[in-house]
Amino acid sequence: MKNKIPLHHFQWNLEMLKIPYEELYAKKCFVPKVALIDSGIDKYHPELIKKINIEDSFDFSGDDSDILDLTGHGTMVAGVICAEEVIKGCFPNVELIVYKISNDNTYRIKNLINAIVKAIESEVQIINLSLSLPFDKMNQSTIDIICKLFEKANSLNIFITIAAGNQNKKIPPNFTNRFNNVYLIGATDRGGLKSSYSNYGAIDFLVPGGDWRQVEFSLDDPIVTCFPTYLHTMDQLNNNIGISKGYCIGYGTSIATAHCTGIIAFLISDYFDKFKRILKPNELYSILIKLSRLDKSEDSLHGELSFRNAHINNLWRNIF
């Protein structure tokens, strides 16, 4: 082991967001259902095992591996959303319903559509898509199908978070912008600036996603999260910096999207605690805009999400 870096060094994301969940979580409040549409999950991970609804989860990848995560991606996303033991996620009081659609870094649109249909049928509150939509490769028929699903989700007060992608390219206005329950998410670094890789343009919000700069190498920008305990991909790096098995550092708009899902889960839970009903899409959209810090760049439509300059009770007061 070369150096041992304390885990809190890689938890700057929570300081940036300042989600005030501690008091709410202590109340054993409303538990939002989150559909994790991804590469699966380490369903035995000590950070996640108690949060997964195994019965309602499903494998759409067709490889007979159940919902077991063979890449680490889905487990990393889940850790950012709701870890609470060794590390902290955004909001630990969630129920994860896992829909596995892939075993690698690609996925079939058919699997994605089937998973969204299943998530809507399961009456989740949030659908987390820490995967980018191939806007330039989707035909109109596919777009129409997805838009109908987004409309159905909107009518049922289901919110959808989508990763903007990691190619550092400008995204033009697209069909996701029509829906106030669908959020395209870009990433920021430790300084609150757009991450070097993050797509930008017609995306809704920027949220911490970390960075990994090749020119000026630094361990200041990655974010710590969970990783499958049975995979060895991160072993060498973990040994070098002193991170235990079952955890890793990472970055990406997938990580940023998971943070946005955690923020929304907290807001849904806090709103239900106060008003005894589920937030509606137009209501949540108004809150998220109030939480955003719009800069003068062209990186996003509404800027960076954070509770830094907001008091939660003031957010609810006289807003609707």
Rank of each mutant, 00 (worst) to 15 (best):
Y183H: 03
T253N: 08
F307P: 02
I158S: 08
L291H: 12
P92G: 09
G40I: 14
G79H: 02
F58I: 11
N314W: 01
I171R: 06
F30K: 13
I120H: 08
P134K: 02
N166T: 11
S196P: 02
E123I: 01
R308H: 10
S155L: 11
M138C: 11
Q214T: 11
N239I: 07
N105Y: 10
Q236N: 14
L288Q: 00
L156M: 12
D38N: 03
G74T: 10
N103V: 03
P281L: 05
D42F: 04
N168K: 13
Y21L: 03
V215A: 15
T229L: 10
P208R: 07
T225F: 04
G252T: 09
N111H: 13
K137M: 05
I87W: 02
E23L: 10
S196W: 01
H8W: 00
C226K: 03
F307H: 06
A83L: 08
D38T: 10
H45A: 10
N168T: 01
S297A: 07
K51P: 03
I5N: 00
I243L: 07
K100M: 02
F30S: 05
T257M: 00
A258Y: 12
L112I: 08
E55K: 15
A115F: 05
I241A: 05
D56F: 06
D136L: 04
L7P: 06
D299H: 07
N157K: 11
D189A: 06
I5M: 05
E15M: 11
T253K: 00
Y44L: 14
V215W: 03
I249S: 07
I19Q: 01
G210W: 12
N240W: 00
V34Y: 03
I127W: 00
N181I: 13
L156I: 00
Q167T: 13
V86E: 13
C226H: 08
S102M: 11
